[in-house]
Amino acid sequence: MSSKILEYFDYESDKSILHQVDPRGKALFVVVITCITILFRELVPLLLILGAIIPLTFLAHFFKKWMRTILILLPLILLIIIINALLLKVEYPTTIGIIMALRLIILTAVYGLFFQTVSPDDISQMLIKFRLPFTFAWAISTAYRFIPTLANETNIIMAAQKSRGLQIDRGNIFKRARNMVPLLIPIFASAMRRSWQLAEAIESRGWNATKNRTYLYSLKMKWWDYLVILVCLAIFGLFLFLVITQVDLPIWMQLYIPSKYELKELFKAAWDWIKGLFTK
């Protein structure tokens, strides 16, 4: 499970159209969509956003991976819908539940797209362009670079401790959590050792030798990047206009699930039906 979630954040070197877009443009896209998704409280606009993002996932060859992630998250999504539908004291609780779930689905798609198409090096280059110190950008890309190494080491330590008789997947959830302690100490110790050795190595390679660091590769905006940024800003502007002017959305956008089909009502009907079976 955990390794599958890490896989979701994996960068895949590919030559898709979205890979060629500057990471700054994509970062802006992520920010804009996140704002819009969180602030819209109607079902139809969210469905429209989702409809607009699905073609993008195909463009980035991300659709299959996204669907796998959604499958993993399915229990959580259903839980969000059910809890909201049953517990919220508003007019249309099921609709709100579905909106919440939709937000989650859209955000997984948007962030997944970003991490799928932006290499860790580009992320650090982007942070440098945003005037963040190099140390910080380097830390981010190095953390990313060590994920597979540490995952591999965790597997080795797990196998070693299992071969000494540690039972990791036995017992209830608390027991299992306690079983993890013999894993955490060696993992932590080896991560510490690694970080020391890495620090030694970068010190010996002239870390912070001069203030004016140069870069082998740095980001350059192309015409389509300006286009992407322009489109993102236009969408954001439209959204701000809608929020500030408080214009009522057209009727067809204010669609709700009718109270006849509220989850609460459906559950009640099902319960009555089951009760009926036994009273007869």
């Binding site: 890309s141 670079r145 050795q197 190595a201 030798a209 660091r213 140069t214 870069y215 082998l216």
Partner: peptide, 30 residues
């Protein structure tokens, strides 16, 4: 200086960038 464990002394994501790292640190032109 070259250390014992190769994995723990490489911090860049391609061989080329790893070689460039010290040069970048010293501000050598691209």
């Amino acid at each position: 200086f070259v250390f014992q464990n190769p994995e723990n002394q490489i911090s860049n994501l391609t061989v080329e960038k790893e070689i460039a790292f010290p040069l970048e640190n010293f501000g050598v032109p691209r």
